[in-house]
């Protein structure tokens, strides 16, 4: 669990981070979102002490980060940046093994870990182990960047706009990979992004920052359904907020289980989101869909009216 306790950072007269308090539960993905200069990247860098706070504390699993040597602290925390920053003069394997080498792992353990990680991020070890970074595409490089961050099996992963420089298709693939990796490893992830769709897709909790202050935090649904003020409302989508709300609301919540649709049509899963249901209705020119709740073993019906009214 990561606890930020009244964290403050000033640059001259400018307050970059202002009395920020935030708790990130173990095994969750927390997104720090906001406009450029809102202090989200500064907050991230305060966690692994790339910069030192002017006030407040960072507690990592109950230990004050300030009480640990910064270099040792950073070796325990994965770090991924937008510009990737692979070491161009080293092979992919050596890039990934940087931290394990620093920690004095045996060569055999390191080699096994490199292959395991390449598999995890979806790159064939036999094919990529010995390549140089410049021989990889941007998306592949960032996959290696993620592997390098995970190399020493840190409990915490910090990501600073990790997919911001990638094209939409590549970004989508990497977001999927991250969700998958997080589900399999249970890492605690703090990710900085200015892309609200990315935050909605990845994060279990979103913290909206403005002017170094925490404006609102909550689940994606809470933010979309009840934005605390006009700033958050504008940030989470303005006129598109309703459509995004459909992305985070499960079909099962709006389904009428007292009515079995009885249609031959392939039912939609209860844990799919409403945007998928709406898309099927629009594509099929229909206003009702059969729903299957596999876990509870029941069937129901979702009508267009249920989609739009809660």
């Amino acid at each position: 669990m990561i606890v930020l306790d009244r964290l403050t950072k000033r640059y001259g007269p400018t307050v970059a981070v202002d009395q920020l308090s935030l708790t990130v539960p173990t095994g969750s993905i927390c997104a720090l979102v906001g406009a450029s200069g809102c202090g989200k990247s500064t907050t991230l860098r305060l966690i692994n002490r790339l910069i030192e706070p002017d006030g407040g504390r960072v507690l990592i699993e109950g230990t004050d980060a300030a009480s640990l040597p910064p270099v040792a602290l950073r070796r325990r925390i994965g770090y991924v940046i937008q510009s990737i920053g692979l070491f161009p003069h080293w092979s992919i394997a050596r890039n990934i093994s940087t931290v394990p080498e620093l920690l004095g792992w045996t060569p055999a353990r390191i080699a096994a870990r490199v292959d395991e990680l390449l598999d995890l991020v979806g790159l064939d070890p036999a094919l990529y182990r010995h390549r140089r970074p410049h021989q990889l595409s941007g998306g592949q490089q960032q996959r290696v960047g993620v592997a390098r961050a995970l190399a020493a099996d840190p409990d915490l992963l910090l990501m600073d706009e990790p997919f911001g420089a990638l094209d939409p298709v590549t970004r989508d693939g990497l977001q999927g990979a991250l969700i998958d990796i997080q589900a399999r490893t249970g890492k605690t992830v703090v990710i900085v992004t200015h892309d609200i769709d990315e935050a909605i897709r990845l994060a279990s909790r979103i913290a909206v920052l403005d002017g170094g202050r925490l404006i609102q935090q909550g689940t994606p649904r809470e933010l979309l359904a009840h934005p605390a003020n006009s700033f958050v409302e504008a940030f989470v989508g303005g006129p598109r907020r309703g459509l995004r709300l459909l992305q985070v609301t499960p079909v099962g919540e709006r389904t009428d289980y007292t009515v079995d649709h009885g249609d031959a049509r392939e039912p939609i899963a209860a844990d799919a989101m409403l945007d998928a249901a709406l898309a099927q209705m629009v594509a099929g020119g229909i206003d009702r869909l059969p729903v299957l709740d596999r876990a509870a073993g029941r069937r129901g019906t979702l009508s267009l009216a249920d989609v739009v009214t809660s």
Binding site: Y79, S83, I84, G85, F87, L158
Partner: peptide, 26 residues
């Protein structure tokens, strides 16, 4: 380039390690 230096700091190379392993070779 700034990116490898930034990454070196972020993943926990010491200033001397960063110099010897990343900056001087580049």
């Amino acid at each position: 380039p700034a990116a490898p230096v930034q990454a070196a700091d972020g993943i926990g190379l010491s200033p001397a390690g960063r110099l010897v392993k990343v900056e001087l070779p580049l």
